[in-house]
C-alpha cells in the first residue's frame, strides 16, 4: 500500500509534474498515509452496488441542436497565449514520438 519512490516518479510522470528526487520520499510517505486511511473502504460491502459516478437528474437530455455559434475572435483565442506565432500557439520542440 505504501507508495514507493519509484511509484511517486511514475505518478508524477503521468501527471506531468516535475518532482525533485529529494522530495520523492516525503511525498511518497504523505500519500501513503492518506492511502492507508483509504483502505477502510475495503470494509464496506459493495456487492451489487453500482458506482454512482455523478448526480444528474433526467429532466432534459443535456444535448444541443447542431447550430453554428460564433467562435471567439482569433485575437481573443490567442490573448492569453504565453507564446504565439503565425496566429497559432507556439510550443517548444517535441522529443520522441507522438502520443494518442
Amino acid at each position: 500500500m505504501a507508495l514507493s519512490e519509484q511509484m511517486v516518479r511514475h505518478v508524477a510522470t503521468l501527471a506531468r509534474i516535475r518532482v525533485d528526487s529529494k522530495d520523492e520520499g516525503r511525498i511518497g510517505a504523505e500519500l501513503s498515509r492518506v492511502l492507508e486511511y483509504m483502505t477502510m473502504l475495503e470494509r464496506v460491502d459493495t456487492t451489487a452496488v453500482d458506482p454512482m459516478w455523478q448526480s444528474v437528474d433526467a429532466t432534459w437530455d443535456g444535448q444541443r441542436d447542431d447550430e453554428v455559434q460564433s467562435s471567439l475572435e482569433r485575437a481573443q483565442a490567442l490573448a492569453n497565449a504565453p507564446e504565439q506565432r503565425d496566429e497559432m500557439f507556439l510550443i517548444p520542440r517535441i522529443l520522441g514520438g507522438e502520443e494518442g
Binding site: L3, V11, A15, I17, I27, E30, L31, I94
Partner: peptide, 29 residues
C-alpha cells in the same frame, strides 16, 4: 523549457502549489 515534456513538467511543478500537487498526484494514482 527547451522541449515539450519539460515545458509541461516545469510549468506544472512551478505553477501549482503543494496541496494541489499532492491532490493531483493522489488522484492520478
Amino acid at each position: 523549457a527547451s522541449d515539450l515534456v519539460s515545458l509541461y513538467q516545469n510549468t506544472r511543478a512551478e505553477g501549482f502549489g503543494g496541496e494541489v500537487v499532492r491532490r493531483v498526484l493522489l488522484g492520478t494514482h
